[in-house]
Design a protein around this nucleic acid. Structure first.
Lengths: 149, 149
DNA sequence: TTATTAAATAAGAACTACTCTCATTCTGCT
DNA sequence: AGCAGAATGAGAGTAGTTCTTATTTAATAA
């Protein structure tokens, strides 16, 4: 008992107002080891080796708890459903984290060479796309307004 | 019959080796009007106003046909399932269009100011992320190898 | 340390987004 | 017009995710 990692996770839970359960500790340890952007199912499969009785719903619920607490983040903000792009012009996107709408951004002159150079050898680049995440005008406003009856 | 749009869509279908059906024409027209990155369900709801008997499966099938033909494209390459990011360091992603794996890219020095300036007024920027789509090393290789028994 | 209370868990039902199957209809060619 | 292959509609089937509820567990107070 009391490995450095376990101690720091206990602290993290206290900070984020989360109860420190055994399941959460194992999930946390597993996530820190899986650096390849796993899906909930992949995480579940790996955790079950160590904790055979854990439920998939617990994995999902705690992933959401960790996401809300900022302990981990989400790579793809539109995993819920396919989104179609009919604008063939080169452009970038603004994604609202609240209402999930996607707004096209006017094409900006950006030097992408340093980015493309960071691609490992053997990989084939087809398309570069940039996205900004945040709050759209509408959601930004409604978040500002004080809670009133 | 024979509006300019209809004629050009007929041509497009011929180029892409797709039969020109009434459903496809209406879908195409609808897509060109919806510039807000709609989901298949939203597209279906809108098409049904004009074509009440169309089936959702037809919308999905033709969206895939249009995607393959390059008539439209897809905004989010990971809509299939949630993907977790445990790397808190600032970095960007390479997304393999074949096997859907996500590879972290080493942080590159890029001037993002022109991109951030393109955000409409009233929007709140929280995070800028860049992704490169293409083929990872492994998929790149297996695509090159000649088809043999 | 134990009692209390609120929160977390396991299990499986339910729901949503999407795909498949197949009988019928339509398109493109002759 | 006639034919062959492709597309459609309807609904069943599947995968990923969320909800519900009874039980267990953690955090706090006594």
């Amino acid at each position: 008992m009391g490995s450095p990692q376990e101690v720091s996770f206990q602290q993290l839970c206290r900070e984020k107002q989360l109860a420190m359960t055994h399941q959460r500790l194992v999930l946390y340890r597993t996530l820190m080891q899986m650096t390849d952007h796993p899906s909930p199912e992949q995480i579940f499969d790996r955790i079950r080796v160590e904790l055979p009785s854990i439920s998939l719903a617990t994995v999902y619920k705690n992933l959401h708890a960790f996401l809300e607490a900022g302990i981990v983040s989400e790579v793809s903000p539109h995993h819920g459903s396919l989104r179609i792009e009919s604008n063939a012009e080169r452009h970038h996107h603004f994604i609202c984290m609240e209402c999930h709408t996607i707004t096209d951004l006017a094409p900006a002159q950006i030097d992408e060479t340093p980015l493309i150079s960071s691609v490992p050898p053997g990989f084939q680049v087809e398309q570069v796309s940039m996205e900004i995440r945040g709050l759209c005008g509408r959601c930004s406003e409604s978040n500002l307004s004080p809670p009133q009856a």
